[in-house]
């Protein structure tokens, strides 16, 4: 039996459907990200699980028991908010101990568990500090400790790292993942940051306009996007127009690739920039004119125009010559690197 089940979960605000009949099963100990642009319904979903937003239709079950009818303060979930939402008038230790106090944990036990939680998040010695006098990263750790110390059935993370600068965010990602592994709490992360979702999650749920676009492991979602939206939301991607012959092969310019399952007539393929390469002389390829190039340190990003559409490709900064603006090149890629997008005709 799944640990957390969302069953046809629906929320409307006036005429706007924020979450539309969402189904999701999460296993015990799993780290699942809800990923999508703002307004896609991911935060509303989290708020419904937490109990801060009413459910219009559908159910939420935790270990088979209905959660919707449970008051938000009786759900026993740990939540880390985007703004951290620390109690500014309480010290770090008081913040962390608050949930234990609400559970009538005895004072000695409370102190012991608070201390352990501070150690877990690397805040030993900060017990008497007030949140205002701590850095964003430290506040983040307090929020995490406060949520984990009550041994929550679920850990809900609402864009927890978005207020940190890039370097700190990367650091915290690693640490968050490691802490979650060690305590084994089932975790739902809400984020609009694809890198964060890919770095942290066992599975990613890509959402758009209140609906789930795709659920899968990070590499699976990245390499095999189920829709043009997923393909473009997760990293850079090229959507190329091709023509299927109805017998499992697709023509993109001069390039003909075997793609089982491709239909007949015009269709769309998604290919990542890093999977496009320049064809050797005499090899078939897609002709493209280089429009511009941008140096990125480890690689170059080239923008180009082809008969199959505008595209971006990557060339490693490995000493080899890089095509210049105005040059015409012939591009190729492997059939395994192309994802067939549903939706039939090219635009």
């Amino acid at each position: 039996m799944s640990h957390l089940v969302l069953d046809g979960l629906t929320k409307r605000f006036g005429g706007f459907t924020a979450v539309d009949a969402m189904n999701l099963s999460v296993e015990r100990g799993e780290f699942v990200s809800l990923l999508g642009p703002s307004g896609c319904g991911k935060t509303t979903t989290l708020q419904m699980i937490a109990g801060f937003v009413d459910v219009d239709r559908g159910g939420i079950r935790l270990d088979g028991a209905d959660l919707v009818s449970v008051a938000p303060n009786k759900r026993g979930l740990g939540i880390v908010f985007q703004s951290y939402a620390l109690f500014p008038h309480m010290t770090v230790a008081e913040n962390i101990a608050f949930g234990l106090e609400m559970r009538d944990v005895s004072k000695p036990d409370r102190d012991k568990r608070t201390l352990a939680a501070m150690e877990l998040v690397g805040l030993k010695g900060f017990a008497d500090r007030y949140p205002r006098r701590m850095s964003g990263g430290q506040q983040q750790r307090v929020a995490l400790a406060r949520a984990l110390v009550i041994k929550p059935a679920l850990l809900l993370l609402d864009e927890p790292l978005s207020n940190l600068d890039a370097k700190l965010r990367e650091e915290m990602q690693g640490e968050l993942r490691q802490i979650q592994r060690s305590v084994g709490t089932t975790t739902i992360l809400v984020t609009h940051d694809q890198h964060e979702a890919m770095a942290l999650s066992d599975r990613i749920v890509v959402m758009n306009q209140g609906r789930i676009e795709q659920i899968g492991a990070p590499d699976q979602v990245y390499d095999r996007p189920a829709s043009a939206f997923v393909a473009s939301f997760l990293g850079k991607t090229n959507v190329l127009a091709g023509t299927g012959d109805g017998q499992g092969s697709v023509a993109i310019g001069d390039l003909v690739l075997p793609l089982p399952g491709a239909g007949k007539g015009p269709l769309q393929l998604a290919v990542r920039p890093e999977r496009l390469s320049i064809a050797a002389a005499g090899e078939p390829g897609l002709e493209a004119r280089i429009l511009g190039r941008v140096f990125q340190g480890t690689h170059w990003l080239l923008s180009a125009q082809s008969a199959a559409g505008a595209l971006t490709l990557m060339r490693g900064n490995d000493g080899a010559a890089v095509p210049t603006e105005g040059e015409t090149v012939r591009l190729r890629f492997n059939a395994a690197d192309a994802a067939l997008l549903p939706g039939g005709a090219a635009p």
């Binding site: 303060n73 759900r75 908010f81 985007q82 939402a85 500014p88 608050f98 949930g99 609400m102 559970r103």
Partner: peptide
């Protein structure tokens, strides 16, 4: 007041009067 601070208290198990006494009023 950031209402999420109160939400945090609720998620940690505080009831309505506890939230008011321990979080809202001090704020």
């Amino acid at each position: 007041i950031d209402r999420r601070i109160e939400h945090a208290a609720i998620s940690l198990g505080a009831g309505t009067s506890t939230v008011f006494r321990r979080v809202t009023l001090p704020l």
